[in-house]
Design a protein around this nucleic acid. Structure first.
Lengths: 224, 224, 224, 224
DNA sequence: CATGAATGAGAGTTCATTCAT
DNA sequence: AATGAATGAACTCTCATTCAT
């Protein structure tokens, strides 16, 4: 007699629902996200219980579900808030005709600094991506965006005769971008992230990275 | 990254206990390890229950504890069995005085082939490392061994005047080794691992890697 | 049947409170009842949440409590609205001295038609009665009213020498009334209720019911 | 990397899994079923919590899941155990050529006695059927089996010239079977079930039922 | 009168681990 | 050495009801 109630309709799960309409609701939602970030960074994703988050946000267990359907969903919200900061650096506003080595140096510095600022979150994303396929995709997409942007820069340098034209721009970008993110992960996440960890300072790290890009792209003939 | 929450009790839990004395015991232990590898590869580490493993090994739940104290311990045993295969490649037995470019090409090929063979396990290790600090250490150690071996090769090339002497061997190795493991992870684990995934063949991947090493080390003056 | 576990607090909870005084209040109350009927018919009583009802009625969760104290109370209100339609048929306005077979036929037709019109609600009442003792009573009372009315008819027929005088009027009415409601439930609720379900049309059903009443009451001597 | 773990495969949920292999397991399973019957009869289906059952069975909460996947599944097991007793009566072993009125009387008595013995369970089934479609089907099947058996008896009587040949055997059986089950439900479940409830004794009830069958089938010409 | 966010008790369920046989 | 039943802590999620705005 009664149409069975099917669970969960559909709704691509990670996508956030509409925001609460009242001021108070907005505040609570924000408190939950902030609390989640704190808790995730403290315990890691897996060991964080929803209750830890609601306690930190000073609301009841049930309130969580007013805003999020699951731990994944609030994690997605946390990452969303952090995305802005991570994505803006790249090849930043450098004057046209600037020395390409300087362009690369500036870009790498911006990347590493952003990574350092969000190191914990990057570690978290790594963990979650290794667990949840949906975030594996998210991480891949972000990485690809970064790779493509760098690939475009490489192509420009090649066309200007400033980089080895034999290199495939996309693959090279993938390799170099992977390298820098790997190094960054190693220094800021795996190791403490303190300056001097593993005997390397931030500037030392940056120098090496720069040299590797330059060597790889082979425009060392004119500059060192 | 995450303040430990689970009491890891006594240390060195990863260290394997002494092997069983009887023939039958040996067989059961081995069946459990094989089953564990199968199950881990099928469900991933987190979603594998001990019961899945014992069912796959065709023994009872209780028997597991005759040989292993926990899921971590059997995972360590699985990785131990697979280590040999992964660690032997590096700079393999090449004749003295060989063309350095060929040495590097052979080494890279060996690495990528080993990675491809053990792709699922590498993905697994990545997952577990992101969860369990003890395996984070394990992974770091293995990676460092690889990095150090490559660093020694780089140093040799520099001393022979075949590579840019300005490069710090260790950091450069770290970068190049990270780059190749990152690419390998990307192709063999994240993406399907099928030849042609993301429009790249195994050989295309290898070529690019080789070229990057060579460019980076700057002995292009003599060779291409 | 079941020792009550839920505290029913104060009695007479089914009794409706006084109606709202304003026009707007009246409209909201009515919207809630209509919404409740819709939702109950869609999901069944148990699976309907108060929130489903308020959403359907386009008002907020809190508003519900302005008019009803609980799910039971609004269900009672829904049933109350439907009662009229269900109770009026019985032995309808037939001219005095009419053929008793025709009287019975008209009564049965009226009953079955009303049942068909309100089939979903009858199924609902069945469900709720099996859950909530208070509605068990309600259903019993309604059934009894129907039984008593039919019993009076039987008695009249007996006194007029038109029905087997050996039959106990009340018990017989209970049996015949039970039979017809059972059949109606079976056809209109359990099975689809579409004409032709289980190979029986509405008129076929009516014929059989009529014949059974007539046979049972044994005034077949005059009529067949 | 990890194949997602899909919940619940399929397995038509009500069907019981294979029985436990050990003696102890068999005992525990049985204890759970007995406890479930007790608890269900005490609180009703809805208000029984799994924990009530395990407490009654003197085992832990987890043990329940060794044997049953849900409340529905154990309820099915309870009903299964009770089915035997309910299904065997019908038109019992009466000598060939016996007075048809006596055959019917014996059958009705057997039915009512079985109903009285299992009254609580029948009420329970009614409740669960009104809630869970799967049990709605179960109840329908059982009722249909009863209806068909009675239909065959009616047909035989018609062929022997002992019953009104104008009646459709199946519909008539449905009506008469429905009537008796309704009455039985009314007396043994809705009302207390104590002899004398609603001013009717068990034998009075039986007499009326018999008379109605006989009247309906119209073989009153020979016997009264 | 209406709103909708907040509450929080309570149920179901999982699974690593133990232990009597 | 093997068995597999028993354990029970821990966690998620629901939803009727309240109440400040």
């Amino acid at each position: 007699m009664a149409a069975a109630r099917t669970g969960s309709e559909d709704a691509s799960s990670t996508v956030s629902r509409e925001l609460p309409s009242t001021q108070r609701g907005l505040r609570t939602r924000r408190a939950l996200i902030d609390a989640a970030r704190t808790v995730f960074e403290r315990f890691g994703y897996l060991d964080s219980r929803l209750i830890d988050i609601t306690v930190e946000a000073q609301c009841s267990a049930g309130t969580f579900y007013t805003y999020f359907a699951s731990k994944e969903e609030i994690f997605a919200a946390v990452m969303e808030l952090a995305r802005e900061d991570m994505m803006h650096p790249g090849m930043p506003h450098t004057p046209k005709g600037a020395d390409p080595a300087e362009v690369i140096a500036a870009s790498n510095r911006a990347y590493l600094e952003a990574y350092r600022r969000n190191a914990k979150l990057m570690g978290l994303l790594e963990q979650v991506a290794s667990i949840d396929p949906e975030f594996r995709v998210l991480r891949l997409e972000r990485a690809d965006a970064f790779v493509r942007r760098n690939a475009r820069s490489i192509e420009k340098l090649q066309k200007a005769g400033l980089a080895d034209a034999n290199l495939d721009p996309l693959l090279t970008s993938r390799a170099l971008s992977g390298m820098i993110s790997r190094l960054a992960f190693g220094y800021f996440v795996s190791r403490g992230g303190e300056d001097g960890a593993a005997g390397v300072t931030f500037d030392g790290l940056l120098d090496t990275v720069n040299r590797l890009w330059i060597n790889t792209l082979q425009f060392s003939l004119r500059r060192n």
